[in-house]
Design a protein around this nucleic acid. Structure first.
Length: 414
RNA sequence: GCGAUCGUAGCUCAGUCGGUAGAGCACCGGGUUGUGAUCCUGGAUGUCGCGGGUUCAAGUCCCGUCGGUCGCCCCA
């Protein structure tokens, strides 16, 4: 092979794409049923859309470029939230509130591929703008759960781990972490699960922290926090409390989150996070729009596919591919003459009609081909033509009848 | 950016001590008997990921590189 696909990208052959569409359909249906409207934005943006929010360091993690001879920096979008905030800001005061948007855009990140992380992927984004109370947080979480449930997952398979930036911050400060070391402590907390207890001990000592500053998050903490109390009630109201748990080990790296944050994980801790999100009440204003509270999440196709595969919830790609209503074969010269017009007639009437391109008269071989496509019916153009009939075989039952040419359509659609 | 590991036919892989490459499974064409099949017959493609080096000789050894997989960093 002289050409390879770029590192970290995927070729989607028909069965592969059928699997992706299966997932996207669950995402889209859940969004639409929950009253979200689909949006899309540019695949690339001005580089500074990302650097103003995340700092110059992010440049290493994304694909950026200038046009030949140009001096404007662009970047392939690594996430959708900045685009969404920009779009919301662009509407200014005409943005209806609440606004409920979702999208399934492609994203690009210049990272080293590994399990669950590729350089190009699809990510479902659901955002609810304009509602500042936890009923909005609950609604977007419920929408995520709806899609996961459609794909066959249950609350025994996955868990929504919910945290709150303010609560975590307060707990760390109360336990004696100095204010100027708060960020370090947050980062350490975020990474705690990935290291052994011993390594974690060492790290905490290195920074002069006490281990119990962090282990306080392990036991069931009853936090007096108005938002979380109210969120708890909402989760019950939405009937999703079994899927959710409060877990203050969840920090999330990004800076723009302002309150509730959450991640969805496989319950045993397999794979990376399936989804992550939270509240970003200042972001739209930061992009020059009105001050609009917002909450949303992103769910990528890569980790989700792995989890579904782990659980045996993804069938072979062929299973998700469209199957023809009818497969037409010709077994004689007279059949060849009417093959095209027969196919054309069926398609004009809205049927998914395929044909064999083989020249063989071997009906057995032709039916093998028909069976392989999972067609509902096979139509054989053969000696029955002498009586102006087609042989029509129901591929499921195996029953075969001769049908007058004029009655073919009504027979197939009845 | 760093590290480990792998790369031989469409797929799964074999290939010994360095001696110019194989198996199985798929797949496909044609033919016969009108029915998802049987039978007959035919079909191959390999720049052994790529490039260099050592050698009389490299799939095999060495170096580099590209790609896959899995970690680290980062994780929106």
């Amino acid at each position: 092979m002289t050409h390879q696909a770029p590192k970290g990208t995927r070729d989607f052959f028909p069965p592969d794409l059928a699997v992706l569409r299966h997932i996207e359909t669950a995402w889209r249906d859940a969004s639409i049923d929950a009253g979200f409207d689909e949006i899309e934005g540019p695949t690339f943006e001005h580089l500074d859309l990302y650097t103003v929010k995340s700092g110059e360091g992010i440049v290493n993690d994304l694909f950026s470029f200038k046009r030949s001879g140009g001096d404007v920096d662009y970047a392939l979008r690594p996430e959708f939230t900045p685009t969404l905030a920009r779009m919301a800001a662009a509407k200014g005061r005409s943005l209806p509130l609440p606004t409920k948007w979702f999208g399934i855009p492609g994203h690009f990140r210049a990272e080293r591929p590994q399990r669950g992380r590729l350089r190009e992927f699809k990510q479902w984004n659901v955002d609810l703008l304009g509602i500042d109370n936890p009923s909005a947080d609950s609604e977007v979480i419920a929408t995520a759960i709806q899609a996961l449930a459609t794909l066959g997952l249950t609350h025994k398979d996955v868990v929504v781990r919910i945290s709150h930036r303010d609560v975590v911050t307060k707990m760390l400060l109360n336990s004696g972490i100095p204010k100027d070391k708060l960020q370090v402590a947050l980062t350490l907390l975020d990474k705690r699960e990935k290291m052994s207890a011993e390594v974690f001990e060492e790290k905490t000592k290195e920074h002069g922290f006490e281990t119990k500053s962090f282990t306080q998050f392990d036991c069931d903490v009853s936090i007096e926090h108005e938002e979380l109390t109210s969120l708890q009630e909402e989760l019950v109201a939405w009937g999703i409390q079994e899927w959710c748990t409060f877990d203050f080990n969840i920090v999330r790296g990004i800076a723009y989150y302002t309150g509730i944050v959450f991640e969805i994980h496989e319950r045993s801790g397999a794979e990376r996070a399936i989804a992550g999100g939270g509240r970003y009440d200042n972001l739209i204003e930061m992009f020059g729009g009105p001050s609009v509270p917002a909450v949303g999440f992103g769910m990528g196709d890569v980790v989700l596919s792995l989890v579904l595969k782990d659980k045996g919830l993804l069938k072979d790609g062929a299973h998700y591919m469209p199957t023809p209503d009818v497969f037409v074969v010709s077994a004689c010269d007279e059949g060849d003459e009417v093959l095209s017009s027969t196919i054309a007639m069926l398609r004009e009437n809205g049927l998914h009609a395929r044909r064999s391109y083989k020249t063989t008269r071997n009906v057995g071989k032709l039916l093998t081909e028909a069976a392989k496509t999972q067609a509902a019916f096979a139509v054989i153009l053969g000696k029955e033509l002498e009586q102006n009939m087609f042989a029509v075989k129901d591929m499921k039952s195996g029953e075969q009848v001769d049908i007058p040419i004029d009655h073919l359509l009504s027979h197939l659609t009845s």
